[in-house]
Simulated assay, not measured.
Amino acid sequence: MATLAVQTIKLGGTAPTYSAAAAGTKIACDERTFLHVKNTAGSSMTVTLTATGQIRGQLVADLVVTVPATTGDVMIGPIPRELFAGPADGLATVTYSSTTNVTVAALRI
């Protein structure tokens, strides 16, 4: 799985670079990091962040977000470590139900 490079939003402005969504990606976990997903396909799709955390011994559910068709534009996050960090690498795992006409960017405020 490829790791998305996190782009920091700067005070003077930032023009994010988007990449085509892959079947699965990784993203850094932190309270200031977000995933921006754009969907121009004719069908809605879902983005899933795999949860790894527990609260009082109960597993946290995966985060599943629907991105609308055609003009879908969704910000997901923040992505906290305690909920999504993988035990081996500390990164969150992201999967997409479809990658056709889907672009993504990892942004940090």
Results as ranks from 00 to 15, higher is better:
V6F: 11
R56W: 05
M75R: 12
A106L: 00
T95P: 06
P16L: 06
G53W: 03
T52W: 02
D89Q: 06
I9T: 10
A15N: 14
R56E: 13
M1E: 06
T99D: 02
V65D: 10
R32E: 13
S44W: 00
A92Y: 00
T46D: 09
G86T: 02
V64E: 13
Q54V: 09
L63E: 09
A5P: 09
T3N: 11
A41M: 01
A69E: 14
V37C: 10
G72R: 02
P87C: 00
K10E: 15
N101T: 06
A5V: 09
A41E: 08
A61D: 15
G24H: 02
T95Y: 01
L91R: 08
A85T: 04
R32S: 14
S43G: 06
I76T: 10
T33M: 01
M1L: 04
V6M: 08
T66P: 05
L91N: 15
V65P: 11
T48S: 00
S44T: 07
I9H: 07
A51D: 01
V60G: 06
F34G: 07
T48A: 04
T66A: 08
L91C: 02
A2K: 10
G42A: 15
L59F: 03
T103M: 00
T46F: 02
T8A: 14
P87M: 03
T66V: 04
G12W: 07
V65E: 12
T40R: 13
G24E: 14
I55T: 13
S19Y: 01
V65S: 08
A61H: 08
V74N: 06
T8Q: 15
S44I: 00
T95G: 05
T66E: 15
G53P: 09
I79K: 02
T8S: 15
T3A: 12
D73T: 07
G90A: 09
T48D: 03
F34S: 07
V64T: 15
D30F: 03
L11F: 11
T71A: 14
A85H: 10
R81F: 05
G12Y: 08
A41H: 15
V6Q: 12
C29E: 07
A2W: 01
T103D: 09
A15M: 10
R56F: 10
A5M: 00
F84Y: 15
Q54K: 13
L107K: 04
A105L: 00
I109L: 13
I55E: 11
Y96F: 15
L35D: 10
G12S: 12
V74K: 11
G13D: 09
T25W: 02
V104S: 04
I79E: 05
L91Y: 08
T71L: 12
T17I: 11
R32L: 08
I76F: 08
P80W: 08
T46C: 02
I55D: 14
A106G: 03
A20H: 09
E31W: 07
V65I: 14
A88E: 11
T14I: 03
A51M: 00
T40V: 09
H36T: 04
G53N: 08
V37S: 11
Q7F: 05
P78M: 04
V60S: 14
A88D: 15
T25P: 00
A105V: 00
A15Y: 06
G86P: 02
T25K: 05
K38A: 05
K10T: 12
M75I: 13
D73F: 07
